[in-house]
Design a protein around this nucleic acid. Sequence first.
DNA 1: ATGGTTGAATATCAA
Length: 263
Amino acid sequence: MRLATWNVNSIRARVDRVTAFLDRHDVDVLAIQETKCRDDQFPHLLFEAAGYQVAHVGLNQWNGVAIASRVGLEDVQVGFDGMPAWGDPAGAEARAISAVCGGVRVVSLYVPNGRSLDDPHMAYKLDWLGRLRTYAAARLVAAPDEPAVLMGDWNIAPEDEDVWSMAFYENKTHVSAPERAAFRAVLEAGFTDVVRPFTPGPGVYTYWDYTQLRFPKRQGMRIDFALGSPAFAARVSGAFIDREERKGKGASDHAPVVVDVTD
DNA sequence: ATGGTTGAATATCAA
């Protein structure tokens, strides 16, 4: 079975690229982030025509996450237990959705950006990640043998080599010690980065800013990850980052990350 | 020129 995760930066602007990607790489399950639409605006029919069931949560033009699957889509859950609320009035944002696809619990995640180190969004980001760690740890206790994968846009570059320049990111988000500790805490809860062993750095990224010619200058960040439970990680047979998807007109600023598991 | 691009409530905000 082949799974992938991709921050598409608007599903409506990108749906042709997304369905072409699914076809080209024979993807069974795609975790999608930043759909940037309400559910009634999501192009459900195009996914159905391509043979995929879709679970999507989108509340407005921001965030929005989905899972598209052609190997079943069971026990859909919006958000995760304990996911923090945000806003005034406070409410849950559309940043997490999960389902069981082909026997794997797939969680599609869009971690809050943080904006800047002293912004309230940064405290929200750290709280959100802490709650995610608690959820992930609880799942391993409740179902230690369940294949589960937390995949999406984590908005964290966990290692120095995951950014094109540590000097550039000094005092910026994505590389700060608290963010990296929050990411590491999920690993310490028992989850494993199943992609990095197949895509070693340095210079291997999943995101390049639209501005400043970052992509042709190879100035990116590795911030999209698939973290597998022990039962999932044991079945991973390969992984790659589809850098080609960042090329050309109409590309998302993120590339898809693909993971293969044995059936 | 203190930006540079893209996408979404077209007017700014978010990334």
